[in-house]
Computed example of a mutant assay.
Amino acid sequence: MARSQQANQELTEVLNQLWRLDTNRLKPETDYIISLQGKAGYVAQGSNYARDRARAPLFTYVNEDKLKGIETYLHFINLLDNYETSTGVSEKVTSEELHENRLFIESMMETDVMKYAHKYLVSKGQSSSEPGQFKRQLYDIWFRLYHRDRSGGQDSCGFEHVFVGETKFGQEVTGFHNWVQFYLQEKHDHVDYKGYKARDNKYTPDEDDHVLNLQFSWNGLVKPIGGCFIGVSPEFEVALFTIIFLMSTQKMTSVVVKVDEYVLELVVYRHGRSIGTSYPKLLSSNHKDL
């Protein structure tokens, strides 16, 4: 992706339109309540210890009627138990899981967010105007299996890494950048929130923020820092990162954009025709009411 101001300005406008169209986004203090608590400490590379600066869970409340009542969330949640979390362990995809993948893509295609993303990508020559072709493209980007650990079989895909999370060598958490998965894993005591990470000690997030940098452990393994959107719909994240992925041929793409009140660094790594990983980093916020 060109690093020109014009390119970033266009991307900013596109992503802000996605934001405006995301009517399935949950509202802070209404649909969910979080408790940020303390600032997370430093974790040495390779260490599996992080001091706990948050005695209580991150999520105090989530309106589960919304998670069960909005189709894209419902189909998204059905996918979260379809994967082996350890890299190096080959994935076995059942016909039922294939069907669940397709239902999720179909449900996203019905949203204004994904319709807009598709229209934009067609205008840029990055996607076919034929919906069936675009669905196959989404499938390849997010669900096509590939080798992450070269010692084993096809053990990973973009969706698993970004939204579900993986463990590497039984020693570290990789990926896991989704708030719904975080909430559900925390609810079942698999996630222990350790605190938030502020960038260069210059910016302190607040509990209305829709983007956070978090530290946590998952089944006893530490994620030193992970950026994730909070409250946004699954289709918003898929649309946003699909656009960045398709508009770049680089192995790693990093763009800084202002979406609503947030200045974000959006990072996407390519793994052939698929996403290797993608995540947001919160740089700053204007703290205005949404």
Rank of each mutant, 00 (worst) to 15 (best):
Glu100Gly: 04
Ser278Trp: 03
Pro224Gln: 02
Gln126Met: 13
Asn16Arg: 05
Leu74Ser: 14
Val256Gln: 12
His118Gly: 02
Pro131Leu: 07
Gln126Gly: 00
Ser107Ile: 10
Met109Val: 09
Gly153Trp: 08
Asn48Ile: 01
Ile275Trp: 08
Val113Gly: 03
Ile33Val: 15
Glu172Asp: 01
Thr12Leu: 01
Ser86Pro: 04
Ser86Cys: 04
Ala44Ile: 03
Glu29Ile: 10
Ser156Pro: 02
Leu282Asp: 09
Glu186Met: 05
Gly226Lys: 02
Gln6Ile: 11
Leu58Gln: 08
Trp218Leu: 10
Glu91Met: 10
Val62Pro: 11
Ala56Trp: 09
Asn286Arg: 13
His190Gly: 01
Leu15Trp: 07
Ile225Leu: 10
His118Leu: 06
Tyr196Val: 08
Asp149Gly: 00
Leu264Arg: 00
Tyr269Asp: 06
Val164Cys: 05
Asn213Gln: 12
Ser254Glu: 14
Phe245Tyr: 14
His287Gln: 10
Thr60Glu: 15
Arg199Glu: 13
Arg55Gly: 05
Ser86Glu: 15
Pro280Phe: 07
Asp155Trp: 01
Phe76Ala: 11
Tyr193Arg: 05
Glu100His: 13
Ile141Val: 15
Phe59Leu: 01
Ser278Tyr: 06
His210Met: 12
Gln171Asp: 00
Asp52Gln: 13
Ser86Phe: 04
Phe104Asn: 08
Ala40Asn: 07
Lys124Trp: 07
Gln181Val: 01
Gln154Lys: 14
Tyr279Gln: 04
Phe216Gly: 03
Leu18Asn: 03
Gly226Pro: 03
Ile33Leu: 12
Ala239Gly: 04
Arg136Ile: 06
Tyr146Val: 00
Trp179Glu: 02
Glu265Phe: 00
Val93Ile: 15
Arg136Leu: 11
Leu79Met: 12
Gly88Arg: 00
Val267His: 04
Leu11Pro: 02
His287Tyr: 08
His271Phe: 09
Ser86Leu: 07
Asp208Tyr: 10
Glu237Arg: 02
Asp206Phe: 04
Leu212Ile: 11
Leu283Gln: 07
Gly272Trp: 06
Asp31Asn: 15
Phe104Arg: 03
Lys258Glu: 12
Ala7Trp: 06
Leu79Cys: 12
Ser278His: 10
Asp260Leu: 08
Arg199Met: 11
Lys258Cys: 12
Glu100Ile: 09
Pro131Arg: 02
Leu21Ala: 07
Gly165Met: 00
Ala7Asp: 12
Glu235Gln: 07
Gly220Glu: 01
Pro28Asp: 04
Lys119Cys: 06
Asn201Ile: 02
Ala2Glu: 12
Lys124Glu: 14
Tyr83Asp: 09
Gln181Ala: 15
Asp52Ile: 06
Val267Phe: 03
Glu237Lys: 04
Leu80Lys: 09
Ile230Trp: 11
Glu71Arg: 14
Asp149Ala: 09
Asp31Lys: 10
Leu212His: 14
Ser129Lys: 15
Tyr193Val: 03
Lys68Phe: 03
Gly88Pro: 02
Ser248Thr: 09
Trp19Leu: 03
Glu166Thr: 03
Tyr262Gln: 05
Arg51His: 15
Val122Pro: 05
Arg199Lys: 13
Phe245Asp: 05
Cys228Ile: 05
Phe76Leu: 11
Gln45Ile: 05
Lys288Leu: 13
Gln9Val: 04
Thr60Lys: 12
His147Ser: 08
Leu290Tyr: 12
Ile244Asn: 06
Ser151Val: 11
Leu15Val: 13
Phe143Ser: 07
Phe236Cys: 06
Glu265Arg: 13
Phe104Tyr: 14
Lys39Ile: 14
Glu130Phe: 13
Leu11Asp: 01
Ser35Met: 02
Glu71Lys: 13
Thr242Asn: 02
